[in-house]
Design a protein around this nucleic acid. Structure first.
Lengths: 240, 240
DNA sequence: AGTCGGCGTTAATGGGCGTTAACCTGGGAT
DNA sequence: ATCCCAGGTTAACGCCCATTAACGCCGACT
């Protein structure tokens, strides 16, 4: 019991890539960047933690569960994170940064290429849809577990979220000049709700055709919803 | 310590109506229906519990907190409910029943009055918006805490939710015959996401004009989103 | 008047869980 | 060859919290 060999009792990881035999092939120079199946240990942990948090809620997941999901057990997580809170914080801040930076990049690129505000808005919609479809768990956490964060991080996340919303509002107001900023903000929030509904869809079996079809459907709905918020018939063409 | 008089140490209720002096004025005949400030004790508890669950998540709220919110302390809740799970179950089942029954009633009334499918759809939208605006906490719980339910109740709630969705899908398919049922289901889910976004809005101060304005905005957006899902320009009038 | 049950109270119990402690190991740098 | 430390392991601690136990008050019926 006491001197038993380690590494045999831990549960198997739930991702597709089993980490049983340590991946000895891919050694990169960096010290803290040892890689197993899918990225750094830290990244593995964050990925699994996000899935678990999204499924069962932050308080509904134990550290042992998270550990088991990556093939290590319980307290070993403390070699990578200061605690459970720190994992959630890193996830939420990471999401918010990615959303904001991605949005800013798209708007800047559109402006640099001399495209119309409507095209910039399309770029924002496309980016958000990609995110919602590819990182469903993160999207779920994004607007669900914010309150479980220690004060400091919560403020950071809120600031980032606000910046992202304002980015949208600016573009929307440029596309629909008659729309008040107040209404635009409300409409943008509603469109986020629409786009972020994807987690619910894919829970059901085959609820939607495929990725491209879903993306197209959501894109059309989002654009039409915004247009109608401005009291305008949507005159844009069909899809991307 | 042991024989101290009860009723003096409990925390004050957070609702507007203090329950300090027992309401002796309103006695109705029913035995289990004693009333204090706002409805039955059971109803008080459910109301506060829904608010707390929505704010902090099911696992993030303790029974002592719920008790304190209605002016009693901790284990007294067990005089009214079998346990914490039972409260959540009653809330979620109640929501789902109200949504489904309300929806069915509206559709039947529209049919009985000889109205068009489009008008039935408008009635559904209006009903959902009323619900989302008046019971924000419940709407939040509705799609967030389902997994925290014991198996039996979870199945019930899912069945009710499915029936509600199917009700919408039927009406939508009648309004837009070219829309495949599959796409209609996806679009309906997306519209739910749009309409249920209201909790996020009102968290911010003055994010939206007023109740009527918000309802109108959401209604227009929902209708336009559904129309665009069918590949149709929304031809309905402004709304009201 | 007497009693009985609804509704509270506080104290105790028991399990779950985050976190820490103490210890082990294997592979790269010296 | 040796050392070191990143990254594991299991055991233990302590808190939080849902639930139960044991008891008290009061209003309503007989």
């Amino acid at each position: 019991m006491h001197g038993s060999p380690p590494g045999s009792t831990a549960a198997a990881p739930s991702t597709g890539a089993p980490a049983g035999p340590p991946a000895s092939t891919d050694r990169d120079g960096s010290r803290a960047g040892r890689r197993t199946g899918g990225g750094t240990r830290r990244e593995q942990i964050l990925r699994e933690a996000s899935r678990l948090f999204a499924d069962h809620g932050f308080h509904g997941v134990g550290v042992d569960e998270i550990g088991a999901a990556v093939g290590i057990s319980g307290p070993a997580l403390y070699r990578h994170f200061a605690g459970k809170d720190a994992m959630l914080a890193e996830l939420l801040v990471g999401i918010s940064v990615r959303l904001r930076d991605g949005g800013e990049r798209r708007v800047e690129e559109a402006a640099a290429a001399g495209r119309s505000p409507a095209e910039a808005l399309d770029a924002l919609i496309t980016g958000h849809i990609d995110f919602a479809l590819d990182d469903r768990a993160l999207i779920t956490l994004h607007d669900r577990e914010l309150d479980r964060l220690p004060e400091r991080d919560r403020k950071d996340v809120r600031r980032l979220q606000r910046q992202y919303v304002e980015l949208w509002v600016e573009v929307v107001c440029r596309v629909y000049p008659d729309l008040s900023e107040r209404c635009a903000r409300g409409a943008v929030h509603a469109v986020f709700g629409l786009l972020n509904s994807t987690p619910h869809l894919s829970a059901r079996t085959g609820a939607l055709p495929d990725r491209a079809g879903t993306a197209d459907l959501l894109h059309r709905m989002a654009r039409a919803a915004l247009a109608s918020a401005a009291g305008v018939r949507d005159g844009a063409p069909g899809g991307g």
